[in-house]
């Protein structure tokens, strides 16, 4: 899809950035609308959410497929928060926390690591594609890493195609 909004709205045309598209959009426009995965991201307030803010203040572009929910700690991501969107048809879930050793609450990310590993193993075991769930440590200073992660995840999910749960009614 080209960028109809850019052509239509003078406010946007004023920005030269519209022409200089970031790498992730560099593919030639195809007649078929591209599949746009929906990613729900749970980011810890202290590291990854702040890192995402930094990506913003640094104007680092990344695909708009990610929708962020702010939590206080990656250690407070309940398995249900991951399961619910997956069963409802979200294409991916990203959990972002502080690097090991940097948790604002001392050890929340270590607990999150175990919990996520268990959850992914259970999903895999249950025949549900666990590769749609990503856990990443991204610090407050890693705006670029946040943008790269979202870009990479979007590409990965685009490749993978829509979550079959999106149309599976009997779950």
């Amino acid at each position: 899809m080209s960028d109809p909004a850019c052509e239509a709205k003078p406010a946007c045309e004023a920005k030269p950035a519209c022409e200089a598209k970031p790498a992730y959009e560099a593919k030639p426009a195809s007649p078929e609308p591209r599949f746009e995965p929906k990613i729900v991201a749970f980011l810890c307030n202290w590291c990854t959410y702040t890192g995402a803010d930094l990506a913003g203040t640094s104007r680092i572009q990344y695909p708009p497929n990610v929708r962020i929910i702010r939590l206080m700690c990656s250690g407070s991501v309940d398995p249900t928060y991951v399961l619910k969107p997956l069963l409802d048809g979200a294409d991916g879930v990203l959990i972002g926390g502080c690097h090991p050793g940097d948790c604002h609450y001392q050890s929340g990310n270590y607990k999150a690591r175990r919990r996520t590993i268990a959850l992914k193993e259970i999903l895999r075991g249950a025949g549900i594609d666990e590769t749609r769930v990503w856990l990443r440590w991204i610090s407050a200073s890693e705006g670029q890493r946040f943008a790269d992660t979202v870009t990479e995840m979007t590409e990965f999910l685009r490749e993978k195609g829509p979550n079959p749960m999106r149309t599976e009614w009997a779950v």
């Binding site: 960028d3 909004a5 850019c6 803010d53």
Partner: peptide
């Protein structure tokens, strides 16, 4: 920070 500054596709 998490939308207008990081996405250029207005729609």
């Amino acid at each position: 920070e998490q939308c207008s500054w990081v996405h250029r596709d207005k729609s």
